[in-house]
Each structure stands twice: as structure tokens, then as C-alpha cells.
Computed example of a mutant assay.
Amino acid sequence: MDHPNATNVSTSQSDFSSIFTNRVLPCFYCVVFVVGVPLNVMAAWIFFRVPGVSGFVVYLKNMVVADLLMLSTVPFRVAHDLNLGIGHIRVITCRYTAVLFYFSMFMFGGVSSLHLLQKPRFARLLSLFSWGLFFFLALPNVILTSKTANEQSSRDCMQLKTPLGIKWHKVSVFSNLSVFWLTLVIVVFCYTSIAYQVYKSYRRVGRDSSDVRRKSNRGIFSILAVFFICFVPFHICRVPFTQSQTTSSDFSRNIEFALKQLKEGTIFLSSLNVCLDPVIYFLMCRSFRKLLFRKLSMKHRRRSQTNAQSLSNINRERSTDTLD
């Protein structure tokens, strides 16, 4: 005999899932896409005119590329969540765009230590190594997601993976998690040391260090804020969620459902990175600010010249009419 409470729980979970993952999140992703595309296209246009004279600029250029790749996957995620295109969109999302999304996300962690390097040549080499490493981890997830899709299996990406694909998925997830947490520890340690050294040096020479500390802290906390707001929540919940996906665990259906909702919510937080990164570019890169202000001033100057020319033409036409 079925228990009425079990039926109510299942129904409420299904309703919550359809509202949160199939209605709410797609709307939020659309906002991220609309805001993120112009910001990152503008950032790319500016950065490809900035010479890579430091490890920090190399780092920012890598971030721009990773953000553009992540943005390219958002329309597919929205179509998948809204059940548009049904099977075809779901298969494309599982095999390609979801892998590209995670690849871009983990690249942010992989290249985040580049801005601590002074020599641009070494930063470029490390960035190439990071791209190669994460590509090596991501490519098998595309190749081994090769089972024939049907209405049921296309709803769950894990059902499209071969047995080897499931094992590789777990290996790649824990490898990426290890790189992320290692990078986070390095960045937090280095930034704490930098902030302390800046404060100590200005105390030693007897200068007012309030402005320096404020500027230094602004840059430090902007990067750390992106780490902790966008990526830390996802990497915390990723371990139990992957365990529930890939092993015959003792997770109840209620816990599996909660982990699924938590994972989808934290993935959205990760996507906010594409809107916050341009703020980091503006706050921390002087060359970016100079080129941006120069572009805006040139546009304003051209607009003023056009308005002045139009006004001159109007006055000339009025003078001609008066003479006639």
C-alpha cells in the first residue's frame, strides 16, 4: 500500500524542480547572457589591443577567452532547461556544451595564479599548460558520452555515458576539484602576504597608507570575492553530487533531489563570473581603463562633431532660405 506522504513529497519535489530548474534559472541565465555578451565582447576588443607585458595581463586575456567560451554555452543550457528541441538539444548539451561550460569554469581556477607571476613568458607557458591539461581532462567526457539517446536517457547525461565514461567523469571531476582548491589556497596565501607587506612597508617609511591599502585591498578582495561567491559553493557541493551520480550510494531520493537543486543553483552562481570579471578588469588593469576611457572619449568627440556639423548645415540652410 502506498503512503500518501511519499506521494506528496514526490509531487512537491517534481513541482519545485519544474519551477526552479525549468522556469526560474532559464530567466536568470538569459539576464546573464544579455549582460555578459556586450561586456565581454568589449573587454576582448580592448584586451587584444593591450600588449602582454606582464603576467597579470596574460591572466586577464585568458579570463576573457574562458568567459566568452562559457557565454557561448548559455543559449544551449536555456534551451535544454526549457525543453526546447527536446532530444537533440539535450544530447548536444550533454555531449558538448555542458563539457565546454565546465571546461571554461575550471580554466578560471587553472589560470588564476598567472597574475602572481612577473614574467609574461612564463605566464604564457603556464597558461598553455593549463589549457592543455583541462582539454585533456574534458575531451574524453565528449568522446565517451556516446550511448544512443532516447527520450528517457536524454534527460540524464550520465545515462549517455559508457561505463568507462562514468569512471572518467569521476576522475576528471576530482582532478579539477584538486586544482581549484590548490589554486585557491595559493591565491589566498599570496594575496594575504602581499597585503601585509604593502601595509608594513608604508608603516616603516612613516607615510599615510590609507589610500594605498584601500587600492590594494580593492584589487585583492575583488578577485577573492569572485572566487568565493561564484566558485566555492559549486566546488563544495560537487563532491556529494558526483558521489550520488557515479556510485551505488545510500543517498535517499530526497537527498539526491536536494543535491540536484543545490548543484544547479551553484552552477548559476558560477555563470555570474562572466558578468563580474569585467569589473575586475576595470578595477585592476590600468591599461584596460585607459583604453576604455579613450574609446568612450573618442565616441563622445565624434558624436559632438556630428552634432556640430548637423547644426552648421541647418544654419547654412536657414541662411540660404533667408537670402532667397
Rank of each mutant, 00 (worst) to 15 (best):
N254I: 05
L114I: 07
L133H: 15
M42E: 13
A225C: 06
F56Y: 12
S210C: 08
R253T: 13
T247R: 03
R23W: 04
A308L: 08
I236A: 06
P240G: 05
S319T: 03
I229F: 15
R203D: 10
L82M: 11
H88Y: 14
V34G: 11
F108A: 01
L269M: 15
S154E: 11
T97S: 09
D15F: 11
S244I: 06
G109I: 10
V173F: 08
R204D: 10
V226Q: 03
R302T: 07
M63G: 11
S17K: 06
V198G: 00
R286K: 14
R207I: 11
S310C: 09
F76A: 10
L128R: 04
H115D: 02
L184G: 09
H115R: 09
I46C: 06
V188N: 12
S222F: 02
V187Q: 08
V274T: 13
T145V: 07
T246K: 00
K295F: 06
S175C: 15
V37M: 11
R238V: 05
T21H: 03
R77N: 14
V34L: 15
F288S: 11
N313K: 09
H235A: 02
E317N: 08
F20D: 01
L116Y: 12
S312N: 12
F33L: 12
F293A: 04
E317T: 12
L84W: 15
G219W: 04
I166T: 12
V274Q: 02
K263P: 02
I86E: 11
R213M: 15
G52W: 07
L177A: 08
K299F: 10
C30S: 13
A43T: 12
L114M: 03
V9K: 09
S304H: 07
P278C: 03
Q261E: 12
V226Y: 03
F134S: 00
G132M: 06
V212A: 04
P4C: 06
N217D: 01
C157F: 03
D277F: 02
N62I: 00
Q152A: 11
L177G: 06
F108V: 09
S248Q: 05
T246V: 14
D277V: 03
